[in-house]
Amino acid sequence: MPPAKKRARAYDPAKTRAAVLAQLGNVREAVRGLGPEQLALPTRLGAWTVRDLIAHIGMAATAVHRALDRPAPPKQDVTVAEWPFATAASASAIDEFTRGLAADHPDVGAFLADVEASLRTLLAGHLGGRLLETNAGALPLDDYLVTRTVELVVHTDDLNAAVPGLQVPHDRQALAAATRLLADALAVKAPGGSTEVRVPPYAVVQCVEGPRHTRGTPPNVVETDPLTWIRLATGRVGWAEAVEEAMVSASGERADLGGLLPLMS
């Protein structure tokens, strides 16, 4: 008998909406006091400055606006766990759009405030089941908002890395949703049940083809914290570096995930 198909993870729509708005608000509050020298600092994202990065955070939120402006697709044709694999193809267009936003909005704090206010209004007027045309395919609005938690959490971390002492907080629900989505994406990329990946307290997934574990301690286990997992999944840190610096524990012959990461970059 073939193994039962795994049920897709369910996200609480109200919590997801609140998480997106909370994390956007965290960033907006933190960046409004940045001066010209801080906005001109480099980031770990190629040639982007902090100003460019903040503009991109606004862009990630207004992707919801742009998607709602387009006609609804006839049916859903992709799962939210497949979204991470579609991001790299849009890198060039994203870079160009981001630079344009940064040039057009010199007051990035005011820009994010406008984005947050308009997003609140927009979400209040649309049901979560409304299908959106996205870069990955057709997704319901509620699912697409889960992808926004990834964008916001990842780029909040980029912002903290770029500006000494900034320490923008991560909303707990946003961090949880981002962690779970990227863990589920790993299970999509490497289906199987031989390796257990643990990201406490938010996610546990089975992945990697091989002998399936059914009870007791799994023979192949990977464990790390949420931010390290997100950095691994998005290419902010490499697998070998994370293992060497004890940011990840990996035991068992099928616990090396280096060939599967990053999931998005």
Results as ranks from 00 to 15, higher is better:
215 R>P: 03
113 A>I: 04
45 L>T: 10
42 P>L: 12
33 G>T: 01
257 L>P: 01
94 I>M: 10
249 S>I: 12
182 L>S: 03
188 V>A: 02
154 V>D: 01
255 A>N: 04
226 P>S: 11
227 L>H: 05
94 I>K: 00
164 P>Y: 08
265 S>P: 00
178 A>R: 01
262 P>T: 04
261 L>V: 00
79 T>R: 15
205 V>I: 15
183 A>N: 01
36 P>K: 11
105 H>Q: 13
146 V>E: 06
97 F>Q: 11
116 E>D: 14
105 H>I: 09
247 M>I: 01
238 G>R: 11
68 L>M: 09
224 T>R: 10
93 A>W: 05
63 A>Y: 11
250 A>T: 00
230 I>W: 05
246 A>P: 00
223 E>W: 08
159 L>S: 01
104 D>C: 03
74 P>K: 07
181 L>P: 02
47 A>C: 06
150 V>E: 02
138 A>S: 12
209 E>M: 09
231 R>W: 14
259 G>Y: 07
14 A>D: 09
124 A>W: 06
167 Q>Y: 13
68 L>Q: 00
164 P>N: 06
65 H>W: 15
36 P>E: 12
144 Y>W: 13
263 L>P: 04
263 L>T: 01
119 L>T: 00
246 A>Y: 12
237 V>M: 12
222 V>R: 04
258 G>P: 00
112 L>P: 04
244 E>P: 00
78 V>T: 14
125 G>E: 13
24 L>G: 01
212 R>T: 10
242 A>D: 04
143 D>K: 13
120 R>C: 07
139 L>R: 03
88 A>V: 07
95 D>W: 13
141 L>Q: 02
104 D>E: 14
25 G>S: 08
119 L>M: 09
236 R>M: 08
104 D>V: 04
260 L>F: 04
258 G>S: 05
247 M>R: 14
163 V>H: 03
54 I>H: 05
171 D>P: 05
189 K>L: 07
114 D>C: 09
135 N>C: 08
222 V>M: 08
64 V>M: 02
89 A>P: 00
222 V>N: 03
178 A>S: 11
19 A>W: 10
77 D>Q: 13
